[in-house]
């Protein structure tokens, strides 16, 4: 899922400073699960902003609403009235949610309340870790299900490098060396010989190097008549 965290409160206050009526829009999917932008966080942020603005001598009308997914038009359409009544929309969805609101409501000023961090999973309660870099050309089948693109600091295809020390990355002792993890897992699966194969340079055009990406599925598109 998409992992995000709330921006510093001061930054959020500055972003909404010019507005009187603020609508905090939460998202019920990824950012709910990572406790950054769900219904509860939206209510907490709205209450905090109401109190802070009142103490500041400029009480704002801050309300909150949460949609199931900010990244789909259908869900955004359900809150059209609230969005249109607001001077500013403070989205606490991921960056996709912020842009979806901006795209669907061209006349609405929308600002982000979160910093979208990475694609990952909750490793334990309150701890999220990165697992995917969305490179567009998955090589997990070659690396024992451990992604060196997302989890190796150098995104090496033929690791480990000389900076791997006792299973840890030289960048930070808390980072496990992805290539050590790959080696250990290949060994436990009896497939160490896979490491003899030298991987050629990756085609990064499927990643960000090819510009903004798009997928079209003709079989799923509605015909023009519809």
């Amino acid at each position: 899922m998409i992992i995000a965290e709330q921006k510093p409160f001061e930054e959020i206050k500055n972003l909404i400073e010019p507005a009187q009526r603020v609508l905090v829009v939460g998202c019920g999917t990824c950012v709910t699960v990572c406790f950054a932008g769900g219904a509860r966080e939206a209510a907490i942020l709205a209450a905090s902003l109401r109190m802070a603005s009142k103490l500041n001598g400029d009480p704002k009308e801050v309300t909150d609403v949460t949609v199931q997914r900010q990244c789909e038009w259908e869900y955004l359409d359900t809150i059209a009235e609230q969005i249109n009544e607001a001077d500013i929309v403070l989205s606490i969805g991921c960056g996709i949610g912020v842009q979806a609101i901006a795209e669907r409501y061209p006349k609405t000023w929308v600002v982000p309340g979160l910093n979208t961090a990475f694609l990952g999973l909750p490793a334990e309660q309150g701890v999220w870790v990165e697992r995917c870099a969305a490179c567009g050309d998955c090589i997990l089948g070659l690396t024992a299900g451990i992604c060196p693109i997302a989890r190796c600091s150098k995104s090496l295809l033929n690791g480990p490098c000389g900076g791997s020390q006792d299973g840890h990355c030289e960048v930070n002792e808390e980072i496990p060396c992805a290539w050590q993890l790959i080696y250990d897992r290949l060994q436990s699966l009896g497939k160490l010989e896979m490491l003899y194969e030298i991987r050629p340079p990756k085609n990064w055009r499927t990643s960000r190097d090819g510009g903004p990406r798009k997928i079209v599925r003709p079989d799923l598109r509605l015909s023009e008549e519809e």
């Binding site: 409160f9 905090s48 802070a52 103490l55 500041n56």
Partner: peptide, 8 residues
């Protein structure tokens, strides 16, 4: 923490 941010 929230109270400190809010100003209480």
């Amino acid at each position: 923490d929230l109270l400190r941010q809010i100003g209480l």
